[in-house]
Design a protein around this nucleic acid. Structure first.
Lengths: 300, 300
DNA sequence: ATAATGTCTTTTATCGGGAAAAAACATTTT
DNA sequence: AAAATGTTTTTTCCCGATAAAAGACATTAT
């Protein structure tokens, strides 16, 4: 077994959801762009849909015969890419108790544990190394630097530097730039979420990412934009792990975002600076407070 | 052939240079730390040295029998790691004319051209991607973003941000910190180089890197420290490629460094800020002036 | 003539295997 | 008993091979 067909399975599932909306499917190239896959994969999907009686397929004609049922879908766990599987396993280990700084990381052991080849694990570790949590010893093992208080402080230091710069670049953007429209719709989404925060608080983290990425893009600097990947990764797993006070925290953050958005719309650099600093300060607090005592020791 | 023994060959060559200095070699573990390799490799080296009559080896006794000759050394090109070989080939292509932004990068083609397996090329590209010059399309090819004027500007923007911050952290370091000693010896090296700049100008780039890395380390921030890898890589290849005015440029840079060092030693943040900005400005100019006209177009 | 479909080719993603190098364990020497 | 040497085991690095997926080319339909 050399390569799983998760791309096909995931696209198939997403295609199934399209069936409910139309009586017939578009052309193969069109479906390809819609699903983000090649025509080769589209045709595999169509073949299976024909076989299972979901559609009648004859050349350009792809008529929907019936609505998809639960059993038509591939199981969720079969739609993940290997990289995602490895990342999840690795992060579980990393955030679990006992992952102390200085610990060695063994490629072979990881690969066996997850049930994948060593190549995929190696590639994952190389990709992951840019997050600053692990380090390679040449011709030897990886060393875990640990999700420590020092890490969180270093991360937030850069984040604050980059976001302040991006925010001041943002207000300097011309009136006809598309960002103002994007900002308006983000503001609306924030207001909607704010009004139902009691029940929808868990939708915040996705909105948070979109908001900050919009601001960072204003820097027009690939290093700043790319650095948000580090932040997003840390926050993603951090929020999965630390659910304490989540509702309250998110309620506060939404309000801070709204103040921040208002400052941006005022185009007054001083106001932006104040609102941005305030939000980043509480974001840092949130992150720091979540680091367990046992991990606050700096590595040697 | 699955793995070359370049680690052994390189360590062997370095060990040969030790033979001139002593009458007998130290213990195996000691040699291992000295050469940065495992005892396994040390023993392979000793075996060969015994076979070729360089030493007499009996347990703890490793007596030098003769001085190494030119033919005892392994050829230089056999001591490079695969990663270095791939990097060089890739950079040659990248900096050569015709490497336009938007161009596709084909793993298989690269691997065939360099004469290595695809795995090594893939791993290289993943590692290289953090330099911001290439980007991966999921399940598909890599895209070259190109060594453009935009790239140079984005790079220097971050560099300036990071170095200014590191420099001000530097002056805040306590008197008993080891950095002041390091700074003193770097100052001496700079003065020595300055006095013979006409002939030794090509030694500047190595000194430059050590100087800036010392400053960046004062930030105590892994993201800042790691970012210097990007700068170092760009400058390394850039200097190999653009030799115009090299002597004059380096003479100026050495003087700027000396002024910068004096400012740091004064511990006056305002003076440091001035000296740092001045040097970074001319470094940026140097980099920008080297980008050929044809590459000044920004990617789409 | 454009855009779709049908078919064939190339590239990517991933595994297993094997030599190089590291690391662990056992034994000897000082 | 501490540190070296001798021996064995494990891990890393890298290749070749193969299915999945993408891409290119040929053919047909509007």
């Amino acid at each position: 077994m050399s390569k799983s067909n998760n791309v096909y399975k995931d696209a198939f599932n997403r295609c199934l959801r399209l069936l409910d909306e139309t009586k017939s499917l578009p052309s193969e190239p069109e479906l390809g762009t819609l699903l983000g896959v090649s025509r080769t994969t589209v045709r595999s999907i169509l073949s299976r849909m024909e076989e299972t009686g979901l559609i009648a397929w004859n050349k350009r004609n792809k008529t929907v015969l019936r609505s998809p049922r639960a059993e038509d879908f591939f199981p969720e766990e079969e739609t993940d890419s290997l990289a995602e599987i490895i990342e999840r396993s690795f992060m579980r280990r990393l955030l679990a108790e006992g992952a102390e700084a200085g610990m060695q990381i063994n490629e072979l052991e990881l690969a066996r544990e997850i049930g994948v080849g060593t190549t995929s694990v190696r590639e994952f570790l190389i990709r992951f190394s840019r997050f600053g949590l692990i380090e390679k010893r040449r011709n030897s093992h990886w060393v875990l630097k640990g999700f420590t208080r020092a890490f969180a402080l270093e991360l937030t230091e850069i984040r604050e530097m980059f976001e302040l710069r991006s925010a001041s670049a943002f207000v300097a953007l011309p009136e006809d730039s598309g960002v103002w429209v994007d900002l308006d719709s983000l503001e609306i989404e924030h207001r909607e979420l704010a009004s139902e925060i009691a029940t929808r608080f868990n939708e915040f983290s996705e909105l948070d990412e979109r908001f900050h990425r919009l601001i960072h893009r204003a820097s027009h600097n690939r290093f700043i934009v790319d650095f948000y990947d580090v932040i997003a990764m840390i926050f993603h797993y951090h929020y999965q792990w630390n659910k304490a006070e989540e509702r309250q925290r998110n309620a506060v953050a939404v309000q801070e975002h709204l103040a921040y958005i208002a400052a941006l719309k005022s185009r007054d650099p001083a106001k932006v600076d104040v609102a941005c600093r305030k939000h980043l300060k509480s974001a840092r607090q949130t992150l720091l407070s979540s680091i367990p005592e046992g991990r606050q020791v700096q590595p040697a």
